[in-house]
Design a protein around this nucleic acid. Structure first.
Length: 490
RNA sequence: GGUGAUGUGGCAUAGUGGUUGUGCAUAGGAUUGCAAAUCCUAAAACAACGGUUCAAAUCCGUUCAUCACCUCCA
């Protein structure tokens, strides 16, 4: 199964057979969040996309070192002389220590990731903890002659690089086009060319995040951290480098350039980019101010939300689209995911108590093959989910006594659900909202006992009244063959 | 302007040169005291126009529309 895995490589714009650089250990680096605000739905996309990839690689038996950074310095507000560090700006506004802001939002990010059942990366390095590594890398670029210093700031000489390398090979840019089409920005006088990018920026007096360097007190340029930390933990060349499509240019393109000069090779073999979440057809993003935070989803308190959505609904919603497609947010779509997920989870429970028969009406082995074929085809989770719903239908049919499966097939189906639904897709049953305490259970049992007596007396009015009133309290009562069932709705 | 995508039933999302699929929504039926859940059935799409082909929604071309990146953004 291992050798069937196809991964779409942005670098070649093709699906390629996944062949690890080293047989024993896979290195994967993913650009993590800049922690100056709460994570929104857009942040959930790469986290879940690469969580799926991480989980599947682990399932296939690979050892994986997964590095996802925390950007807590370095991303400039603008690429101009008066550019200011995002974290610092936020800190100034809130009159906090920058690291206080970083700590606060990092904790909240971790909480959100935990709610989404996103596995922790193997290493989660912080840019601020790797200033020395970044400075050392800049020195190397200098030593190779591809950096120049102006007024304490250091820039990468893209034009020189492009003479021997291909600047633009990842994003499909052509340098001549960049030259003529780059927007006019003020304060770029320091750079030889507008497309040169900063390796180190001298801090202005108002900058509160600053470190000493051979060139000035300042801070590293915005692409440096990923190169330095990726190299430190995964080596000069590792297997997978991931991130959002919006990071393709200039971020990843520039990473390739500086890594080639400093380390002599492209940093990654496979470049994997997830697409955007859209809202009304437009990218959900900070700058457009059209984002909905994950905490908003969980609470339902946002004007665009008709209701609250569980973290698993969000995860399922994201997994129902292929990671390279855009995914459009709407309440209707999320409600559809919520119901679909609930159907899948119920079937998974039903599966556990299925009774075996003398014959099998379904080909479970074939289903298994189709599921893994989907995963192996560039992590196609939506097709995998579509196949799983086929199994859901089977399970319910068997439960209804309308079809049957051999014990071996039921066991295989159980294994499939365990592996695919829980281990690989990373879904988990919704937590019981309430009702897990004895008192509540006792009260419910009492009420339902009264209802049962009413039903025996054919007092439908009373029985229905109890059910309706409970329903208004978000408690669903269902009569089944085995007796009465109840659950608390979200 | 440059680069790269995308346009699939009411919504969201897959897939494929010939019979399309999944979830939600809709209609009818089964089941149920009635519901819920479940099952069965149904209707309904492949942006437009050309071309290649025995056959195209799938390949090619043109057009239209939308989006992303080119400035921080997942």
């Amino acid at each position: 199964m291992k050798n069937n895995l196809l991964i779409y490589n942005t670098l070649t714009r093709k699906k390629e057979i996944f062949i690890p650089i080293k047989a024993s250990l896979i290195g994967m680096y993913v650009c993590g969040p800049t922690v100056y605000g709460d994570a929104h739905l857009g942040h959930a996309r790469p986290a879940i996309t690469f969580d799926l990839i991480f989980r599947y690689l682990l399932y296939l038996g690979y050892k994986v070192r997964y590095v996802r950074n925390i950007t807590d310095v370095g991303h400039l507000e603008t690429d101009t002389d008066d550019g200011e560090d995002k974290i610092a700006k936020k800190a100034r506004l809130e009159k906090l220590e920058p690291m206080e802001v970083v700590q606060f939002y990092t904790d909240r990010y971790h909480e959100n990731m935990n709610q989404l059942n996103v596995k922790k990366p193997s290493i989660e390095p912080r840019a601020s903890g790797h200033i020395i590594e970044q400075i050392e890398m800049i020195k190397k670029v200098f030593a190779e002659g591809y950096a120049y210093e102006v007024n304490g700031s250091v820039y990468f000489d893209v034009e020189k690089y492009n003479k021997t390398h291909d600047y633009g090979k990842l994003s499909g840019r052509v340098l001549e086009d960049l030259m003529s089409n780059t927007r006019e920005l003020e304060g770029q006088s320091e750079k030889k060319n507008s497309y040169d990018f900063a390796l180190w920026k001298k801090a202005m007096p108002e900058h509160i995040m600053r470190w000493p360097s051979p060139w000035s007190d300042g801070f590293p340029g915005w692409h440096m951290e990923c190169s330095a930390m990726g190299c430190k933990y995964l080596g000069d060349r590792f297997d997978i480098h991931g991130g959002g499509m919006d990071l393709l240019f200039p971020h990843h393109e520039s990473e390739i350039a500086q890594s080639n000069i400093a380390n002599g090779s492209d940093p990654a073999k496979y470049w994997v980019h997830n697409n955007m979440v859209t809202i009304n057809g437009q990218k959900m993003g900070k700058s457009l101010n059209n984002f909905i935070t994950l905490n908003d989803f969980l609470s339902g308190k946002h004007e665009a939300l008709e209701q609250a959505y569980s973290s698993m609904t969000i995860r399922f919603f994201i997994l129902q689209a292929h990671y390279r497609s855009t995914l459009d947010f709407s309440n209707e779509a999320l409600i559809a995911s919520e119901k679909g997920l609930s159907k899948l989870m119920n079937a998974s429970e039903t599966l556990q108590k299925l009774v075996a028969s003398e014959k099998s009406d379904f080909d479970v082995q074939r289903l298994k093959q189709k599921c893994y074929d989907g995963l192996n085809d560039d992590f196609n989770s939506p097709i995998l989910i579509a196949h799983l719903f086929e199994a859901v239908k089977w399970i319910n049919s068997i439960n209804d006594g309308k079809a049957s499966l051999l014990k071996a097939d039921i066991d295989l189906l159980k294994e499939l659900f365990n592996d695919l639904v829980f281990k690989i897709l990373g879904l988990k049953p919704e937590e019981e909202a309430a009702g897990s305490d004895e008192l509540f259970d006792g009260v419910m049992n009492t009420i339902l006992e009264i209802r049962k007596e009413a039903k025996i007396k054919k007092d439908w009015a009373l029985a229905d009244k109890i059910r309706d009133k409970l329903s208004r309290l978000n408690i669903n009562v269902k009569d089944t063959k085995e007796g009465v069932n109840w659950e608390v709705k979200e």
